[in-house]
Design a protein around this nucleic acid. Sequence first.
DNA 1: CATCAGGGCCCTG
DNA 2: CAGGGCCCTGAT
Length: 322
Amino acid sequence: MKLGRKTTFTIRPKPPFHFGGTFHKPSHFPNTLKLNEWEPGKYWQMLRMGKQLFGLKIENRDTTSKPQLKITVYGSKPLTTEARKEIRKEIIWRFALNKDLREFTRLAQKDKRFYPVFKKWLGMRSQSPNTLYELLNIAIMLQNATVRRSQQMLDALLGAFGTRATFDSHELWAIWLPQEIANVPEQTLRDLKIGYRAKFVKRLSQDFANGTIDEMKLRTFDKDSAKRELIKLYGVGPETARILLFEAYHHDDVFDHIAPWQQKIYSRLFYGKSMVPVEKIRNDIIKRYGKYSMLAVHYIWEDIFWRRKHEKIEWLEKEIRL
DNA sequence: CATCAGGGCCCTG
DNA sequence: CAGGGCCCTGAT
């Protein structure tokens, strides 16, 4: 796929803003066929807008107090003004660039114990670089599998149905459209060794192709209404809904569901113990961080995974189970 | 070699 | 509302 035509424009995120924390999530494990790439101050991904596909490069143009991003869109033909506006709006939504983090920042500053951690990441946001359908497919591959197996399954699906493109000297992959695999036999999907998830992927693709769910409409819903709708999706339960609500819909207080492997890591991070009851973890976090419960935990979570890149954290390695 | 749980969810009783 | 089953893999 050729993406030779460039269009550039500027986005100014609402301060405080943290480029690395927003565009690079160390807790997300990269697969072989890359969906995005990051290096300090720069970020690349493929961007789906409806049926159209673009290359996207985002660069940090931070002038100390005034956050500024240089956006470059790579397309097969020049962008119309209208298309440029749509893409700009979409980027702002997906990375929550207009979110006002001042209140959360004040809360973080009052936190004696974790302020040193928060301070490193102030201005970080939750993000989903992808459409709801795309993120859903990734989340399904995470279910009931170790990290390595999730990577294998996603790579297999991308290799079979994904789109590869090179722009700005980066080779990246985009997830297929729902209509492209809605009619693929379930057995074809099973042959990619995704197991019983094949049924979920097929059913979800059919439902999305038929327009059963409106990704954009859910953006206007409050947390509980959005959750009610997401849970209706075949293959979406409490944990997947939590991921979608936080990453794709930017609800900062989705801390109701705690998976067993997360429980182990939270126990270590917050109590220095190997196992603390989930009820206690949930109550303590919600009491302390209120409507920013998930966002606060996200800062501490990403920080430990960031540290993992540079130093050996013995107990964490054991819990991650590659 | 066999057994088992894993970054859940659906379905049944 | 509890519990069984699910695909496949790597760990034990």
